[in-house]
């Protein structure tokens, strides 16, 4: 069902060009190594995940031509988006994206990037967010935290990755819905933020579990609330924001996209490749150990998911006064 829908979509796009009319979904094979663009620098969360995907492909010999990881970290993903949008060989250029896939084109309209035009290949996971404090803060519940943060006003420092990106959007949500005045300090990466919490240089963070789990396992960092629809298996004691009466859940997409204008056959090839990666034991283990969410999505379903999230982010940014 999924495949046929994807084919139809591809045909609709390419019928006018007279391409790929009779080709079957698997007719495409890369003829050279594939550029695998990573929207972040070496060593970050997105990079680790991309390299894991590449490794799985290599280990199980899933593709005849290798994926070549290329980091384009500039401008919160701007560099990667522009590079992929202008890719000369659309059938051999794919990219791993995050939520900056939505926010960066909105914040930097000068780039002329339209995210919705990228070819939807596969959503591999959604990363989750929790609210973390140091165990020495003595705070053990979300209610306690709200009361305390209210009482200290702008002395409470929340750290997060980047400006007006995921972490700050969640911080804005907390500030406006619980009448708080937290100060937000942007850092370069989630690992640094986790370290600032552990070293008590900032008071709280909204790290992804994978970034802070070392400190959680050591009992230093404590999760107070999860920004997910259901409680996470690994953190059963952290209630969700929905339990706290707010209809708010926020995830970070971990998706693979193709260059705009990618042929339908190529898109089908990459979707089936990443489906294999998704189904591999390594990826499933990784998902479980890092508390990742989200099923496999591709084609029109992924496109629809993007549209919803794009609008959500537009509203969040407008609220933050920046779009």
């Amino acid at each position: 069902m999924k495949i046929s829908r994807r084919c139809l979509m591809g045909l609709a796009v390419f019928a006018g060009l007279g391409l790929a009319v009779n080709a079957s979904a698997q007719a495409f094979e890369p003829v050279k190594p594939v550029d695998f663009i990573i929207m972040a620098g070496k060593g970050g969360g997105a990079d680790k995940m991309a390299r894991l995907m590449q490794t799985i492909v290599e280990k199980h010999k899933m593709a005849s031509k290798p994926l070549i990881p290329i980091n384009k970290p500039g401008g919160s993903g701007a560099e990667a988006l522009v590079h992929v949008q202008n890719a000369k060989d659309q059938d051999h250029t794919i990219m791993v994206t995050l939520n900056s896939f939505y926010t960066t084109p909105m914040r930097q309209p000068g780039l002329g990037v339209d995210s919705m035009k990228f070819a939807p290949v596969a959503r591999m996971a959604e990363d989750t967010f929790l609210l973390w404090v140091h165990k020495d803060s003595g705070l053990t519940s979300f209610e306690q935290w709200v009361d305390h943060v209210k009482s200290v006003g702008d002395q409470w420092v929340m750290g997060g990755t980047g400006k007006l990106q995921e972490d700050q959007l969640i911080t804005d949500f907390l500030n406006s819905n619980f009448d708080l005045k937290m100060k937000y300090v942007p850092y370069k990466g989630g690992g640094t933020v986790a370290k600032q919490v552990a070293g008590k240089h900032i008071n709280s963070s909204v790290n992804n579990p994978s970034e802070i789990e070392g400190f959680y396992n050591a009992g230093v960092a404590i999760p107070l609330v999860a920004f997910t629809k259901e409680r996470l298996d690994k953190f059963p004691n952290a209630p969700t924001m929905i339990e706290k009466g707010q209809d708010f859940a926020y995830y970070m997409q971990r998706s693979v996209v193709g260059a705009p204008g990618m042929s339908a056959d190529a898109q089908a090839y990459y979707t089936s490749l990443f489906k294999k990666v998704f189904d591999s034991k390594e990826w499933q283990d990784y998902r479980a150990s890092k508390s990742l969410y989200g099923d496999f999505l591709s084609g029109a379903e992924l496109q629809a998911y993007w549209k919803v999230n794009n609008e959500t982010h537009r509203k969040m940014l407008a609220k933050a006064g920046a779009s």
Binding site: K42, G43, D47, L52, G214, E282, S289
Partner: peptide, 27 residues
């Protein structure tokens, strides 16, 4: 701590995660 002190160790850290090792105070 699970925090890389240099770009190279950041990649090593990625490798450790793939091998199923969790760096951190408990390691």
């Amino acid at each position: 701590l699970g925090i890389p002190g240099s770009p190279t160790t950041a990649i090593l850290l990625g490798g450790m995660v793939i091998w199923g090792l969790v760096p951190g105070p408990m390691m």
